[in-house]
Nucleic acid binder design. Structure first.
Lengths: 256, 256
DNA sequence: TAGTGGTCTAGACCACCGA
DNA sequence: CGGTGGTCTAGACCACTAA
C-alpha cells in the first residue's frame, strides 16, 4: 500500500496575509504547490485532513477545501472520500494558458528565433472572413513568420487577427521578432479564453521544402487554430506548418 | 452592446429533487445546460443574479454559485463582477474524458471497424518496461489493432497495458473488435486520470503503406500516449500511426 | 465504528462595474 | 451610487472507506 506519514506540522509554517489582495485559498494553494515542487511533500504523501488543516492555519474548512480543489484540478492532489488526500505521482499539470510555440521552445531550453516574412493589414479574404465570422472585406492583420530554433527552421506560422483589437499597434515587426504572438496579445490586454485546434500532416511542397530547409515530400505537421476571447468572439485564426523531423506536439490531458 | 433581457422566470420551472442522490448543484447545472443546448437560453442571454436565482429555486447562494462555476469551467457561461452572468457564444466545451479514436469516429457519424492483429501477454521489452516504470520482464498485454472507417484503413494502434489490471480478462479479441479500448477499461473499473501525448509525423514505410492502403512515403500522423490512473501509476502506453489524408486530430482548449 | 471527504446552508464583507 | 460576482465563515448532515 502507498502509505506515508500524515503531514501538517512538517510543513514550513504558512502565515496567511489577510490584508493581501490575494485570496486566502490561493495563498494556501500556492504554498502547497511550492512545497510539492520543492520535494517537501513528495509523491504519495498523505495530507492532514481538512478540519485539522483549517485549525492549524486559522482558516475555515470551505477555504481549505477550495485550495485543495484547485490543486486537484491542476493534477497535483488526489482525494478520496473516506480515505484522504494524497500527493500525486508523476505530475501532469493542466496547462494554465494556451500553448505558444515560442514559449514551448524556450521552456525546452532551445533558442527560438523569428523572422517576419509579412505583416500587413488587408481586407479579409472570403475564407478568412467566414472563419472569423466577419463581413467579407473587414480589415484584418495578416502575419507570416518563420520560426527557427538552434539555427534551423522549425515552422512557418500564418496568422489572421481581428483588425480592431485594442493592441493592433503593438504588433510591430520588431516586437514580433522578439516575443511570441500570444505573449504580445496578453500584454496588450487581450484575454484568450478558448481555442479549436486541428492537427494533421502532409508532404512538403517544393517551396515549403526550400523555406524550411527540408526536401520536397518531407513530412510536415499542420496545425490550424481558431482562438476565442472571453466573450466567445473569434479573435485569431492561424494555419501553421511544422517540420516533423524537428518538432512534435507535446500535450497533457486531465480527465474532468 | 450584447444586451438581452434578464432571465429567470422564462425558464421552464426546475423542481429540484432533494431525495435524489444527484447533488443539487449538479441538478441545476444540468438543467441550465439543457436549456442552453435547446436554445431556451440563446447566446448572450443575461442570467438572473445569484441571489434571485437562489430564491426562485429554493437553494442557497453557494449551491447556485457552484452550479454556475461548473458551467463556466465547461465553457458555457461567462461571469464578470459588477456585471453579471452571460451565456457564451460558440461552444467550446472541455472534453469530459480522454479522447478515444473509436468514440471520436462514432461521434463524427462514421462507422469504425477494428481488426485485432495481435493480442498477447508477454514479458515487457526494456523500452516498454522503462516507459511504464516496471521491472524489465514484467508481463504486459501487447495489442495491435487496425482501425478502419467507412471501409478504409485509418490507423494502426499499438498498445501495451499493465498485466495486473483487474480487467485483463475482459480484453478479449472479440470485445476489442466491437468496442474502443478505453470504453472497455472504463467498463472494467479502470479510472484513467491523466495522459501525456506526443504528436508527430513521418513518411510511411512500405509495410505501413500496404497495411493502410496508402503509398510509400505518404504522410502519417504519429501519436504516442502514456496514460495514468488516479494514483498516478502508468497504466497504458500506446504508439499509433494515422493516415493523414483521412484523419486529423481535433482538439478544444480552454484557459484556466 | 471512527474518520474521511462531499454537500448544503445562512449569513457577512468586499472589489468591481456601470449609470 | 446600487447591483454584481468574489471571498470567507461556522456550523450541519451525509456517503463512503477502512479496520
Amino acid at each position: 500500500m502507498p502509505i506515508e506519514m500524515p503531514i501538517g506540522p512538517a510543513l514550513p509554517a504558512l502565515v496567511v496575509d489577510r490584508s493581501s489582495p490575494v485570496p486566502l485559498y490561493f495563498q494556501l494553494a500556492q504554498h502547497l504547490e511550492r512545497a510539492i515542487d520543492q520535494g517537501q511533500l513528495p509523491p504519495d504523501t498523505m495530507l492532514a485532513n481538512e478540519i485539522q488543516l483549517a485549525g492549524q492555519l486559522g482558516l475555515s474548512r470551505p477555504t481549505v477545501r477550495r485550495a485543495m480543489q484547485y490543486l486537484v484540478d491542476k493534477g497535483l492532489l488526489v482525494r478520496r472520500r473516506g480515505v484522504g488526500t494524497r500527493v500525486v505521482q508523476p505530475r501532469v499539470r493542466r496547462p494554465l494558458q494556451l500553448t505558444s510555440l515560442h514559449d514551448d521552445l524556450l521552456a525546452g531550453g532551445r533558442l527560438p528565433r523569428t523572422r517576419v516574412l509579412s505583416n500587413v493589414v488587408e481586407p479579409a479574404k472570403p475564407d478568412i472572413a467566414q472563419v472569423l465570422a466577419l463581413p467579407s472585406g473587414t480589415p484584418v492583420i495578416s502575419l507570416v513568420r518563420l520560426r527557427s530554433a538552434d539555427g534551423r527552421p522549425i515552422a512557418r506560422l500564418t496568422n489572421h487577427l481581428l483588425g480592431d483589437l485594442p493592441d493592433a499597434r503593438s504588433l510591430t515587426t520588431q516586437a514580433l521578432e522578439q516575443h511570441g504572438l500570444y505573449a504580445l496579445l496578453r500584454a496588450a490586454g487581450v484575454v484568450l479564453h478558448a481555442a479549436h485546434q486541428s492537427i494533421g500532416a502532409r508532404p512538403a511542397t517544393l517551396a515549403e521544402a526550400r523555406l524550411l530547409d527540408e526536401t520536397k515530400g518531407a513530412a510536415l505537421l499542420t496545425m490550424s487554430r481558431l482562438t476565442f476571447d472571453e466573450r466567445g468572439r473569434a479573435v485569431e485564426y492561424g494555419t501553421h506548418v511544422y517540420v516533423a523531423s524537428r518538432y512534435s506536439f507535446e500535450l497533457s490531458l486531465l480527465n474532468g
